[in-house]
Amino acid sequence: MSTPAPHGMSEQKTLTSYVVGFLLSLSFTLMPYYLVVTHRVAGTSLLITILTFAMVQLLVQVIFFLHLGRGASSQANIYFFVGTFVAMLVVVVGSIVIISNLHSNMTSLDQTKRIIDSEGIYQVSGELTGACRGHYPNHRVTIENGKVTPLLTIATKCDTLTFIDNDIVNVAITFGPHIHHTSYAGLDILSVPKAHTKTITLSQTGTFLFHDHTRPEVKGSFAVVDAN
């Protein structure tokens, strides 16, 4: 790295390194540009190619311009550079992977609703955010001998709904029509083991179908309306 006194490098050598670095960088800029403009390669492989060129040019500039690895404090500098590079990869790749993974399971709208719910902040500056708080009436749906009672539950937003499985098998509650399921308030599946109960908060308004995923004929529905 360049410190006031060029450590172990003559002026001539430094000059050469700048010229070499400049020429190499120039070619590593023009080559990917040429590839993109001419569409010699396409799609993901093109993306990977140009990113590789960028990485190589990064190395070129670090070695020939920044002179990393030369000078008194070189080792610490290299460690910091490598560490930062790893951290950057974690930040960028981590974000891309995580966000796409989150979105493959939940839509932005569902996520927004759930953030509001799970932050437990139902109003900000006197304006309601749509989150539920406190305790609200409870509704029950019993599943016994393959029969759902009641078939339709009508509830107000923020009420709770308890599924009671009195059957001899475990039940997996899914929402919407069979096979092409939808989710309810970010919830894709609710498993209720036999002789157990599960409760959900009705934070999403509208009318919804539900059924047991293993026995699609065991089905019912519920409607959630706004309080006012």
Partner: peptide, 25 residues
């Protein structure tokens, strides 16, 4: 200053690659 300037060039390589070239990839 020169360290800073080289560093900005390095950041630009990635902007050029990811933003500009990436848009056409």
């Amino acid at each position: 200053l020169s360290l800073f300037w080289h560093f900005l060039d390095i950041v630009w390589i990635f902007i050029f690659t990811i933003v500009y070239l990436g848009a056409f990839a």
